[in-house]
Write a protein that binds this DNA or RNA. Structure first.
Lengths: 242, 242
DNA sequence: CGAGTGGTTGATATCTTTCAACCCACGTGG
DNA sequence: CCACGTGGGTTGAAAGATATCAACCACTCG
């Protein structure tokens, strides 16, 4: 059986932080996944839902979010190969919303199937657990980001994080990556106002650190951006050894 | 064998959100755990450490934190029965610091032992995985807290969260609970300044919602505090059904 | 061509921080 | 038993960062 693009994305992403052997790989390739295309800005799973499937991102950007004081806070941005609602395997009620940022190709995997997989292949169970732990590590860093960094540093940190994660699955090209996000959405990631995001981006552009426009992000000075955002990649755990 | 206070705390906490049967319970009671007392403000595990044991909180308060722009951000507060560095089972390098807030009785469990337990008792593996997922859910709520809520709402939310979590393990008594935390530490939880925390607390005291003093927190009007902090308990997943 | 979405701008308001001082309770040592 | 040192809490004035409001601009799509 030829590997589906679904399994391929999942395997590629899992392999970044986990050791996946041939048998694991085969088990993943045989996983029944039903695909579906979603338009931008669509809700995939609502808060309080009790999903029976997990959602695998194959293409596009997916976000998790919840609201407070009428404003939305984006909790995480998910990219190809990730399973943003993997937690629903053990946390039955959704405590936040899952939606598409851009048009997305998604694959849905039944919870039962995943549970069986975890029993049959403990190594994959550990890998999936680990993925949720990396998720949590990123949440921690986002707490620091909105809690303790200035608006410019926040933006710099977010951009470098996205670059690092996308780079490890081969979705960057010389300092640039596709990032079709509006300033309103950036504001929702960073706990800022859209107007202020605009000004922050102008400053970063002026300082020749970053150019974000037309669904594309160009990093001009990665080193200085990292410094500005105090970016320290340990928390991404981008290697099976870490 | 009489159950140690270590196992007892762990079982009590796990039972809040998980279904633990008699065999599970026995397996937990037989777990080799070495106890140790820690003074307040001591580091248990440093950032970049590679721990070989997990740390079980039996008594006292433990925090996870990391720093940015010279300021500390507290990421979570852990209470009796929790294992704050359970993630180190699969994430080998610490991306943050673990330390005591108060004097603490801690129990240390070797990673190997926990891994064996997960293999031998899949139900406990699921329970532990679930605990790390609840952790992540709390991180998400904290992102919302620092990202989108006003200083007063932040404080209200934090206090109600602590009340709920402590209440479920029987550590509250009529609207009050032990909470030996300084204003500086609260500031580090909420992404605020100690001075501002002081003013927020004064306002909450004036409005007769809350009185926090002498290591004790008195909740005067739980309903209005919840409203003020927009507290919605789903994210705590405080029942095996959720 | 017109509507709509996303981006930009300037003026002003608000919230939170900063800084510097002061107070109070507690514990310790002379 | 008092004097002092210390940690935590409190206060006021001023500065700074970010939010708010209300326009306006520039594409793109139909």
């Amino acid at each position: 059986m030829a590997p589906t693009p679904f399994a391929a994305a999942l395997i590629k992403k899992l392999s970044v932080s986990n050791t996946i052997d041939a048998d694991d790989r085969q088990a993943l390739e045989e996983l029944p996944i039903t695909g579906r295309f979603y338009d931008p800005q669509q809700t995939i799973v609502h808060e309080y839902d009790r999903p029976s499937h997990c959602c695998l991102v194959v293409d596009g950007f997916v976000i998790r979010s919840k609201s407070a004081e009428g404003q939305r806070q984006i909790l995480s941005i998910h990219i190809s190969g990730e399973i943003p609602d993997l937690q629903s395997l053990h946390l039955h009620v959704m405590d936040h919303e899952l939606s598409t940022l851009t048009g997305c190709t998604l694959g849905f995997i039944a919870h039962d199937v995943l549970r069986q997989l975890c029993v049959a292949r403990p190594n994959l169970a550990a890998a999936l657990w680990r993925e949720t732990l990396v998720d949590a590590a990123i949440f921690r860093e986002w707490i620091v980001n909105v809690g303790r960094r200035s608006s410019v540093a926040r933006m710099a940190h977010l951009i470098v994080e996205m670059w690092e994660r996308l780079d490890h699955i081969g979705r960057t090209r010389d300092g640039a990556f596709e990032f079709p996000v509006t300033q309103v959405e950036l504001a929702d990631c960073l706990g800022l106002t859209p107007v202020h995001v605009n000004r922050v981006l102008q400053q970063l552009r002026q300082d020749k650190l970053l150019h974000l426009a037309r669904k594309e992000c160009n990093i001009l000075e990665k080193g200085r951006l990292e410094e500005l955002g105090q970016f320290e990649p340990t928390y991404l755990h981008l290697s099976p050894q870490l």
